[in-house]
């Protein structure tokens, strides 16, 4: 299985990753060989096998959808972690342009 450079660009675009020119080529090679390796899963007959989605299928993971607030110190740390802000507001590039 050999990926093309166009496929590498398409995956990088989907993943929102900027790659250097050198990386496009090295990733193309390395990811192709990894996909070759995992391609061995196709040898397995799984027609009658149910997919397993979790390591343990024991519990009900749902909880009420309630808003819980945090203490003032946690809130302050969350604000300070923002890369750019104005007062208590998060600054970003324009979402609609």
């Amino acid at each position: 299985m050999q990926l093309t450079l166009e496929e590498v660009d398409k995956i990088a675009a989907l993943a929102r990753l900027e790659l250097s020119a050198e990386e496009r080529e090295s990733f193309r090679r390395q990811i192709s060989s990894i996909l070759d390796y995992v391609g061995k899963l196709r040898q397995l007959d799984t027609a009658s096998v149910e997919p397993m989605t979790h390591a343990l299928e024991l519990w009900d993971p749902l909880r009420p959808d309630e808003v819980r607030s945090c203490d003032a110190a946690t809130r302050q740390r969350l604000l300070e972690a923002m890369p750019a802000r104005q007062g208590d507001l998060l600054k970003t590039d324009a979402v609609f342009s």
Binding site: E7, I11, A15, L17, E18, L19, E23
Partner: peptide
């Protein structure tokens, strides 16, 4: 993401995205 993640992280993100 391109500059913040190292090579292996980006490689795995690419494989998973594919």
């Amino acid at each position: 993401r391109g500059q913040g993640f190292g090579k292996e992280a980006r490689r795995r993100i690419m494989i998973g995205t594919y």
